[in-house]
Computed example of a mutant assay.
Amino acid sequence: MTSITDPNLSDRFASAMEEIHNKQLKTYEEIIDITSDLSQSHKHFVKSALDTCLKKCKDDEMLFETIQAFKRDLEHKNASLKEKRHAVSETMSEIQEKEIEKEDLMQKIEKLKEEQTKRKELIESQNKANKGRLRNLQKARHVFQDHLGLEIRTIRGESQLVKGEKLQFVFRNINPSDEDSAYVITMGITESGSYQIVSSDPVLECLSVLERRLQETNNLPAFLANIRNEFICLTRR
């Protein structure tokens, strides 16, 4: 063991203490460097985390604004869709009303067609009947005018029942004492196509009966023959 009285002991001790101090200083420097690096790393980490959080906040704000914009657009579209549905409903109602009106109009047109067909058939029937009556008149003209001196006149009529042309049948050779004396029956055809006696001169009491028989039989020559006989009977009373 070195003696405490060794004169170099103090220098060796100071040298050892300085070496220990230097080692500690070096250790402290290393700790400070590590701490500094850790501090810088922590700062970078905090800054990165802060930047990430800020970016995330901005992204969230943009996402929130986008969601709000989508909500507003959806509300607008829903409102527009509601208006369109209402318009479609009104249009469908109008179409249904038009269909009902169309159906009603078609029924009216069909009814008018049926009425027109019936009217046409009636007119054809009346024309056919009038042609038959005209043939009867022509036959009566030949029979009575050629053999019995009958005169047939055409006159205009304005009565409510019989309008247009009327015929006057003028009979002569009725009264043996006055063969030129005229006996007149005036008649026409109503709008319904039936014969209508307007008047007789002189008046015959049975004229309505003869008229009804004429309308039932449509036999004009027989009617004129009966009228002539009635005029003859009238002169003998």
Rank of each mutant, 00 (worst) to 15 (best):
T52E: 11
L150R: 02
K43T: 03
L204V: 04
F64M: 12
T154L: 15
S199W: 01
H86S: 14
N8S: 09
V88D: 15
N130Y: 03
I109M: 09
K108Q: 11
V143C: 09
F171Q: 02
K71C: 04
N219R: 03
V198R: 05
D104T: 10
K139H: 07
I185Q: 01
G188S: 13
Q196E: 15
S48R: 00
E110M: 09
L105Q: 07
G164D: 06
V88E: 15
I67Y: 08
S15W: 06
V46M: 13
A14M: 14
M106A: 12
L122E: 14
E103F: 02
Q24A: 14
E94C: 09
E211S: 06
T117V: 12
R228K: 09
K82S: 12
A182K: 10
I189C: 05
G132Q: 06
L9V: 06
I197N: 01
E90S: 08
G188I: 07
L161S: 09
M92P: 00
I227E: 03
A225W: 03
T91A: 14
R228E: 12
A87V: 06
K71G: 02
R141T: 08
L54S: 14
V184T: 08
S10N: 07
M92Y: 05
L38E: 11
E29N: 11
R12G: 04
D201G: 04
G132W: 02
R12W: 04
T2C: 07
